[in-house]
Amino acid sequence: MVDSQTSQPSNPVIEVRKLRKEFGVLKALDGISFNLERGEFLSVFGPNGAGKTTLIKILSGLTRPSSGTARVAGFEVEGGHPEMRREIGVISHSTALYGDLTPLENLIFFGKMYGLGRLKELALTALEDVGLAPRRHDPVRTFSRGMIQRLSIARAILHDPSILFLDEPFTGLDIQASNVLKENLITLHNKKRTILMTTHDVSCGLEMCDKVALQVMGRFAFFEDVEGINKDKFEEMYFDAVRDKQFAMGIRHS
């Protein structure tokens, strides 16, 4: 894999303009605009149903936006250009691993799909990095949740993406696994990878990032640099947003 940084055509790496996603009456995104420079780490907070997952799905080329544009690594996301997909890695709460295969086979399969060379060595190093090398020949379904999540990180960064999307990666992890994930993220951040993460965990999310966004009802209610943000104040604002949302849901269902 060539060093992905050199092929970067332009800054900013992620450029989102008036992004909307709606179908009939369902409105997941309602006009989001923001930029992310290379090496920046953005944490997106927001209650359930705010459209965070939709945002990540559009940015990774899984879903088409209804209107607006988004450019990732210099490519228009609509249509999911293969070169763009090479630049991104996605970690979500689904592990995206085959339970009947061994970790090694899983990584080799995904490596083949990316057209990577010298796969076996690459896969072994990746397994070493996440500390799963001793168990490389056991089927994945015998692993614990934390181990699976570590393997899933290894899978997502196997092709050395310059941009990472994380969709609530901390959900359901024990302390050890989430520490491994955090360490990984910090390393990647130091290596100047651009990271966009959605999360509920305020302290954890604020700790690592450069920029903070609060997404409510498909819009960014807040988008600032992390410096100068009072954690308690932000927390208060976030909980207000969640409560309002739950209040609205309550009316709808009653």
């Binding site: 080329g61 991104i88 689904s94 339970g99 995904f110 799909m113 057209g115």
Partner: peptide, 11 residues
């Protein structure tokens, strides 16, 4: 395990 989504993310 959401493998299909991972397949769709491949180039």
């Amino acid at each position: 395990n959401g493998c299909l989504m991972a397949l769709m993310l491949m180039p």
